[in-house]
Amino acid sequence: MAEAYVTSDEHPACGICPSRRFPLGAFDVFERPSRDCPFNPADGHRYTTDGVPVCVHPEKVGIPAGRYKTDGLPVATKLALPDDVAELDSYLRDVMHSAAPGVLELLIEQAATEIPRNFPGVDVITTLRRALS
């Protein structure tokens, strides 16, 4: 079996989240609990009607909602940088620290591209170091 998407005990994903058992792409992520992913009282997990494991907290696993296993969707991460440069460090810290390793690299690449566009004159390396420390 491939390594789970979330491997750190420090990650905000729930202890019962499929991200702790399956690699990225082997489970779906829904915006919230729904009838499309009922709770299974036998094992405490949520599944689609086709038996695909479902996470219902995209903000905790650090990836947007999507039917990654069901539809074979690739992970598309998108930074939504704040309008105010004063909020940049805390925003990046929250996003980077809640991201799993497979997504972190994509987020860093996006930040390196987007920060100079949105905030000319901001030192990208220094900003990312503060966010990641």
Rank of each mutant, 00 (worst) to 15 (best):
M1Q: 14
E3Q: 15
Y5L: 11
T7P: 01
T7H: 00
S8R: 06
D9N: 09
D9C: 05
E10C: 08
E10A: 14
E10L: 13
P12N: 00
A13F: 00
C14A: 12
I16N: 12
P18V: 00
R20S: 00
R21W: 03
R21A: 14
P23W: 01
P23G: 03
L24Q: 10
L24W: 02
G25C: 07
A26V: 06
A26Y: 08
E31Y: 09
E31G: 09
R32Q: 15
P33Q: 11
S34D: 05
D36Y: 14
C37Y: 00
P38H: 07
F39C: 04
N40E: 11
A42T: 12
H45L: 13
H45T: 07
Y47F: 14
T48Y: 02
D50Y: 09
C55V: 01
V56S: 00
V56H: 05
H57S: 12
H57N: 13
P58I: 01
P58R: 02
E59P: 00
I63V: 15
P64G: 01
R67C: 11
R67K: 15
T70F: 03
D71L: 15
D71A: 15
D71S: 14
G72F: 09
G72P: 06
T77S: 14
L79K: 05
D83H: 10
V85G: 05
V85H: 06
A86D: 08
E87P: 07
L88S: 01
L88H: 08
D89S: 15
S90T: 10
S90C: 07
Y91H: 03
L92W: 00
R93C: 14
R93T: 14
D94I: 05
V95L: 04
M96Y: 02
M96A: 09
M96V: 02
H97C: 06
A99R: 00
A99Y: 02
A99M: 02
A100G: 13
V103N: 12
L104D: 09
E105A: 12
L107C: 01
I108G: 06
E109P: 00
E109R: 10
Q110G: 00
E114V: 10
N118V: 05
F119M: 06
P120N: 06
P120Y: 05
G121N: 10
G121H: 10
I125W: 09
T126H: 15
L128S: 03
L128K: 03
R130G: 11
L132D: 07
S133I: 09
